[in-house]
Nucleic acid binder design. Sequence first.
DNA 1: AGCCTGACTCGGA
DNA 2: CTCCGAGCCAGGC
Length: 92
Amino acid sequence: MVRRIPRGRVATYGQIAELAQASGPRQVGYALHALPEAHDVPWHRVVNARGTISLRSGLGGEAHQHALLKAEAVEFDANGRIDLDRFRWKKR
DNA sequence: AGCCTGACTCGGA
DNA sequence: CTCCGAGCCAGGC
C-alpha cells in the first residue's frame, strides 16, 4: 500500500491502516519498522496524523526521512511539520 | 495465558 | 492550536 503513494505526497499511518485494511495505525508503523533490507517501499512518505516525523527508535533516521521527502518537493514548515492539507495523499 | 512495549490516534482539557 | 491520558493490536518473553 505504501508503494502506491505517489512521489511528492505523504500519507498518515491511520490512512494507510484504513486503505490497507490493517488492524490499526500501530501495526502499520510496526510493519514499516520491520521492513526487510531489500525493500522497495517509500516508507519516508508515511508520517503521523500531525504531519511530523515520528521515529521512536534509531534516531537520526528522522533527518534522513526529512531529506528524502525534501528531495521529492514535500515542504516542511518552521516546526518541521508537513502541511497535510497540501501534501496528504488523496487516493484517487 | 499474562505482562510489557511500540514508525499511532482520538477525545477531552 | 497544544498537551495528556486512554484505547488499540500484534509480537516477544
